[in-house]
């Protein structure tokens, strides 16, 4: 099958967490505090997709399989999709559009500040993800999309600064991010690419 033929499959796979969330919502399986559960679930999957997206380039380098690049945009857009769910949960379910409270949270709470920053920075990346925009921006597209590294760092601190005592999960996420960024270094070389 041509790589592009696998895209619908990937789309379905990326939708599984969302379907699971809907299913758990319908079957009343989101704990006694569903709003917090939805917030955590969507946040965690945003982070998962962010790291999966960031894994494409190192994976390409390691396997020499350049076709992988075709899937990166979809993975990135799913990151944005889960981030939108996460952010709208915060606005609509958690705060029910209490704007004064929302602004106070963003300004006063460092973990919200970095999370909000990460979300805002994702917007230009999603907007410029079309073929047309890629062509129009030319070399600037690459520069712009390097923002994803900063977004990754913001996302890790967003998680780290909100946990009460168990910092292990955000630390693991942080280490994976470090690894994925380190593998990009031109000093790290793998076998030559496949032809």
């Amino acid at each position: 099958m041509a790589p592009s033929g696998k895209k619908p499959l990937l789309f379905l796979a990326c939708s599984i967490p969302f379907c699971l969330l809907i299913y758990n919502g319908i079957t009343n399986n989101l704990t006694a505090n569903p709003i917090k559960e939805i917030t955590h679930f969507t946040g965690e999957w945003t982070l998962n997709f962010l790291l999966i997206t960031l894994a494409v380039t190192p994976l390409r380098k390691i396997t020499g399989n350049n076709a992988l690049i075709r899937y990166r945009r979809m993975l990135g857009l799913f990151t944005f999709f889960y981030a939108c769910l996460h952010f709208s949960t915060f606005l609509a379910l958690d705060h029910f559009f209490d704007w004064a409270e929302i602004v106070r949270d963003i300004v006063k709470r460092p973990y919200v500040t970095v999370g909000f920053t990460a979300f805002i920075l994702l917007i230009p990346l999603a907007v410029t993800s079309t073929n047309k925009m890629t062509r129009r921006l030319g070399n600037n597209w690459r520069k712009l999309h390097r923002l994803i590294y900063l977004i990754g760092v913001c996302a890790i601190f967003h998680y780290l600064w909100l946990v009460k005592a168990d910092i292990l999960p955000p630390v693991i996420y942080g280490l994976i991010l470090c690894l994925l960024l380190a593998l990009r270094s031109p000093r790290i070389k793998f076998k030559s690419r496949k032809t």
């Binding site: 969330l21 809907i22 919502g25 319908i26 009343n28 709003i35 939805i38």
Partner: peptide, 8 residues
Amino acid sequence: MLIKTPDP
């Protein structure tokens, strides 16, 4: 609707 209050 996602949010359901459990029945007593």
